[in-house]
Design a protein around this nucleic acid. Structure first.
Lengths: 336, 336
DNA sequence: GGGTATGATGTAATGCTTTACAGGATATGC
DNA sequence: GCATATCCTGTAAAGCATTACATCATACCC
């Protein structure tokens, strides 16, 4: 009975109040003022349930990530949420804990809440789960799922650009012997990053030395072990690029434990620019993953789709190198 | 028109379907089965908007934290969310960015969404904002707001216990000269932690040496500066306890930069047990803040209140020391 | 077997907003 | 000044589940 009170106070019908509320055109200026004042005076707030019930739209977006505890995601969540808040949209979010199967239930929960749109910002997705959303007519956007690029809108990040920058940085310092810590190759993003690194090498006429590639589990511990493996190789690379910052941090620890000084004895570059990259010692040079921009694009895209506006395919986002203190000329080469 | 379809299929009225859905007693076993099957066969899911509209309850909880980007919070969010999910409750969450004034609008947004309950897990709160919720009849729970302990339910953490443990640990290693990195004293939690540290000292008959206390901003940078200040003091403490892990990490860096080796030359203990504490070198001994338990208690309390069950005041939670590698006997004292 | 207590189910009102459609007022054209 | 187009506003249905109350069936008692 509440829009009714406002209507009475403004001496109009509920329809007119609703029109004002939703910014529909065709309300006389004078009436508009009156209604606005009545709304303000009564502190009236439309009931979202009634709104959702009638209009089908809930002004609720879903956000699915892999893992809140992974320091990669908070910024993305933050950015997404801030944009939503600015438009009076609320976000409910869940995480799959890296299990693509859990995506199914995450999406079901969101459909049950009748969200208007879903951003699936996980590293892995299963198409089945997405089809649920498609059937329910809920727009979806993915992050870097090239496999599904044609079928679902996708925010792409071009890893190659970042690796090229870091490679050029290392080359300019004088490095020629560059190792790589890869992630498990059955993981989408890990494979993509390795491919990008190799492509960057090749574009500089360099080739891959298999013995300078070690595998880690994308976590700190994996980086540590991979680094131990690489440090045992002879000859040894003078610089190492890691698939992500967590492994780079692990690598740093392993180096420290082996009394290999970074950057004096060995240069190290991460990927992602997690907050931790700036906190370790030495602060880690790393490739910044543009996750705030990813969130912004994802939100923008969903937002437009919901409003029925056409969406254009955007050019992939470019990550960039952030130079800190973990890189220096190789041993024996003077700083220029 | 959807509960109607189910009702038709099961040859009952919508009222009966609703009863089954909500687990009300007084439905004959046979009917129950029939309705259940009809629900399953039609893949029926009640419309949450209609439910919320009619019943007032939305099965939506609000969670307000200070800052998603602060690594303290993800675990808390995670735990809260998991419990909610298990009960078919969705969580919308916002953050104040440490600005108590933003709490007002955060709570307003949640009221507008007619959440059933709100967990305010920020380090600072303004009572005005809470009153909004009270007026709207929405239960609220706070974290460690002793000022408001009588007025609003509160999940308390007893800092003293943690500091006592770390002090005893340091004493047993042979330390007698213990410094402290405090946070800004106008911040609730920082003041609470300092008071607790001092209380722990006193309970061991020790007193506070003001020149061994330095102030930081609770962030890494602040810890670095505070450590620089402490390292300049003569005599110098042989062990330092920091108000939080971020500052402890900064302190570690400052020590490293000054060629003071941790733990050989100086022992260091943090507070919170952020993920980063285990990642730095050396891994940081720290007092684990029981944030998963905080989330669980907060959820439990809200959940009970919503169901109308009486809630008992719980005993404060106790943080405990996690010993890693940043503590050792002071220089000149043999390890026992 | 008649009457009442108990249990199971149905009927219909209710919650609040949006929106298709209708209707009244005003402006425009001749 | 009359007809018509345009603009503004109102009426009422629809959206879906919950729930107070009514009704019907069954069980129980004497």
């Amino acid at each position: 009975m509440d829009i009714i009170q406002v209507a009475k106070r403004a001496n109009v019908s509920t329809a007119t109040v609703s029109r004002v509320l939703n910014g529909f055109p065709g309300v006389r200026e004078k009436t508009l003022q009156r209604v606005r004042r009545a709304i303000a005076e009564t502190n009236y707030v439309p009931n979202p349930n009634a709104r959702g019930l009638r209009a089908g739209r809930t002004r609720l977006f879903g956000l699915i990530v892999s893992d809140v505890n992974n320091p990669f995601f908070p910024e993305l969540i933050d950015a997404f949420e801030a944009l939503a808040a600015a438009q009076g949209i609320e976000v409910i979010f869940t995480h799959t804990n890296y299990d693509p199967k859990r995506l199914q239930s995450c999406i079901r929960r969101m459909i049950e809440r009748s969200v208007d749109a879903i951003a699936v910002m996980t590293s892995e997705v299963e198409e089945d789960a997405l089809q649920q959303a498609a059937r329910a007519g809920i727009p979806v956007v993915l992050m870097n799922q090239r496999k599904l690029a044609g079928k679902y809108p996708n925010v792409l990040v071009e890893y190659t650009a970042g690796f090229r920058e870091s490679l050029e940085h290392l080359l300019s310092l004088g490095h020629r012997d560059i190792g790589f810590i890869e992630g498990p190759q059955w993981i989408n993003s890990a494979r993509g990053r390795k491919d990008a690194f190799i492509a960057a090498l090749k574009s500089h006429g360099m080739h891959v030395r298999d013995e300078w590639i070690a595998t880690g589990d994308l976590r700190v511990e994996g980086g540590r072990k991979a680094m131990d493996a690489l440090l045992a190789r002879r000859p040894r690379p003078t610089a190492i690029v890691a698939t992500n910052d967590l492994m780079a941090v692990g690598a740093l620890q392993a180096a420290y434990a082996s009394r290999v000084r970074v950057p004096r004895d060995l240069s190290l570059i991460g990927f992602d620019d997690l907050p931790i990259a700036a906190m370790v010692h030495p602060p880690l040079s790393t490739i910044r993953h543009p996750r705030r921009e990813v969130a912004a694009r994802a939100f923008e895209l969903l937002s437009k789709t919901v409003r029925g506006e056409p969406v254009a395919e955007d050019a992939p986002l470019q990550p960039h190198l952030v130079i800190r203190n973990s890189t220096a000329p190789p041993p024996g080469v003077k700083r220029r």
